[in-house]
Amino acid sequence: MKLSKQDIEHVALLARLELSEDEKDSLTGRLNQIMEHFGKLQELDTSQVAPTSHSIPLQNVFRHDTAGRSMTPSDVVANAPESRDDQFVVPQVVET
């Protein structure tokens, strides 16, 4: 599969990246190279291999349902670019 410039624009939109025309052209080429490498991997016969979701042989790691301390609201918003009344300020959103 070959990626078009439109594909790059779409992926950039999903990732909220603003790209210049030059960057789009350059990334189209470079991402297509990466796709070729994956294409090579696809050639491997994995029909006898179970899907892997994790590389470590661990399962059922749980914590007990006990409540502990949280941060103070002022610490929570300490890194926010903008905050008010201990809440994060973001551009208006039109949804609930």
Binding site: D65, T66, A67, G68, S70, M71, V76, Q87
Partner: peptide
């Protein structure tokens, strides 16, 4: 439950804004 899904923050309603938040929540 008493606590959140993936961290120890307490589940209760009506708390002051961002008073039940920790590094995992963020």
């Amino acid at each position: 439950t008493e606590s959140k899904m993936f961290c120890k923050c307490k589940v209760d309603f009506g708390g002051a804004p961002n008073s039940r938040v920790c590094p995992v929540c963020l």
